[in-house]
Design a protein around this nucleic acid. Structure first.
Length: 302
DNA sequence: TACCGTGTTCGTTTTACTTCA
DNA sequence: AATGAAGTAAAACGAACACGG
């Protein structure tokens, strides 16, 4: 299964720094995928860790192969126009939209105002199916360079203000609407991937908790069995808060309990030593790693 | 009004499979 | 029987759109 996922180029490996493998599940109440992820070290919901990146120049990627194929055919439908052409063509017809999809329904809002919108409408309308006699609507595919630049831009900011949008559109020889749409789709893809990662993460948590639950139930059974022994019963101490030494990770209990570490005599738990931390029941039995999620979504096939 | 998130559409590309020489 | 080219259906991808908030 993981192998399959890795074939996607999407790494669902979940890694946290070694020293933080005890996850902060104290915050579990809001246990939804994105929240779970946001509770992880290094996860910032405001500036999300979009280290999920589409490797634009991945030579194994579909787009690369497509490009190569296209190039070999001698037809690069997405080739950038010369800079001189750019400005004109961006209005009348972007280099891509010369063969671009012409949806008759294209947004009214583009036709509402402004020169740019007017030009966009023209370019959008382009050559209608009736006009060019070509019944198949062509769709553009951004060139590798265009995608790379957009990716770079997305890494810096996953949203664009109008100025940035216009500048980027000009730079790429695209319509600003195209840039806008690309960013929208890119955000959606990122979110989708993040959700998948979160799901995988929670799935592992669930597995760990199930295992832990089984282990504890078994322990309870064993303790119940021991309870039958009067000797054990006499030595029993009332339940108390367990603490764990962060250094040696041993459980320390009050002095009356003999079978574990005495908190007072424990070398790490003296007054000069750091405070013990409570045992975290949510911590997985095995460390959960949550690594960067390389964001090549492609090829869910093995 | 502009923008964004989300769901959807649909053209293009890739992949797996079959057929045939 | 093995091999490679050609054809094809299905899946996947991604640009673009619609719509509600």
């Amino acid at each position: 299964m993981m192998a399959e996922k890795e074939d996607l180029g999407l790494s669902l490996s979940l890694s946290v720094p070694q020293n933080q493998h005890s996850l902060q599940f104290n915050r579990m109440p809001s246990l939804v995928p994105s929240t779970a992820a946001s509770s992880l070290p290094g996860f910032n919901p405001q500036k999300p860790s979009w280290n999920v990146t589409f490797p634009p120049s991945d030579q194994n990627s579909d787009s690369y192969r497509a490009e190569t194929r296209s190039f070999l055919r001698g037809i690069d439908v997405n080739s950038l126009p010369s800079t001189a052409d750019c400005e004109e063509e961006a209005g009348v017809s972007s280099p891509n939209s010369t063969i671009s999809s012409i949806s008759g329904k294209r947004s009214e809002r583009e036709g509402i105002n402004g020169e740019e919108h007017e030009m966009e409408r023209d370019s959008s309308r382009g050559i209608s199916d009736e006009e060019d006699g070509d019944t198949s609507r062509k769709k553009l595919r951004l060139s590798k360079d265009q995608a790379a630049i957009l990716e770079e831009s997305f890494k810096e900011n996953n949203t664009l203000n109008p100025k940035q949008k216009m500048a980027l559109a000009k730079q790429l020889g695209l319509r600003s609407r195209q840039v806008e749409v690309w960013f929208q789709n890119r955000r959606a893809r990122t979110k989708l991937k993040q959700t998948e990662v979160d799901c995988e993460f929670l799935k592992r948590c669930c597995e760990n908790l199930t295992a832990e639950n089984r282990r504890l139930q078994k322990e309870v059974q064993e303790l119940r069995a021991l309870k039958l022994s009067p000797q054990f019963y006499m030595q029993m101490t009332p339940p108390t808060t367990l603490t764990m030494c962060p250094s040696c990770e041993r459980v320390a209990v009050p002095p009356s309990a003999s079978s574990t570490v005495d908190a007072r005599s424990h070398p790490h738990m003296g007054p000069t030593h750091h405070k013990p931390i409570p045992v975290n029941p949510w911590a997985p039995a095995t460390p959960i790693t949550r690594g960067p999620a390389p964001f090549d979504v492609h090829r869910p096939r093995s």
